[in-house]
Amino acid sequence: MLETIPLSLDEVVAVAKEHFDGGWRLVTMTAVDVGEAGFEIFYHYDKDLVMKHYRLSIPKETVVPSISPVYFAALLVENESRDQFGICFSDIVLDFGGHLYLEAEVRAMPFCKVSVAQKQS
């Protein structure tokens, strides 16, 4: 079972800063749609091949502070989450505005379960 450390919205940047200074590497972030409860965002950090996972649970339409000013590497994954889930991040260093992968004609937020349910009905 995956061991995760819960994280709150105000701590996101502070925790990132702390890990950056402590010599941790950002592996990636993972967004998961958990239905009614909103989204879960995992922050995976790595140091000397040991991984640490933080779990941030947020309701939908929450604006998440971007950690890309701390970890430049986060910019792609934050833009990707914006594309696929519609999660907005404030202050991404390079904001593609939801068009990193997708053209305007594609259905918005393809990974969200609600929009899938709508499509099927």
């Binding site: 592996v27 990636t28 998961v32 749609d33 995976h44 590497a73």
Partner: peptide
């Protein structure tokens, strides 16, 4: 990152590939 919820389909499959990390 894999998440299953007890059904035959996975709930989420997240793939972080090496080039994705090497672009920054």
């Amino acid at each position: 990152y894999l998440k299953g919820v007890g059904s035959k389909n996975m709930d989420r499959v997240r793939i972080r590939t090496p080039t994705f990390a090497n672009i920054p």
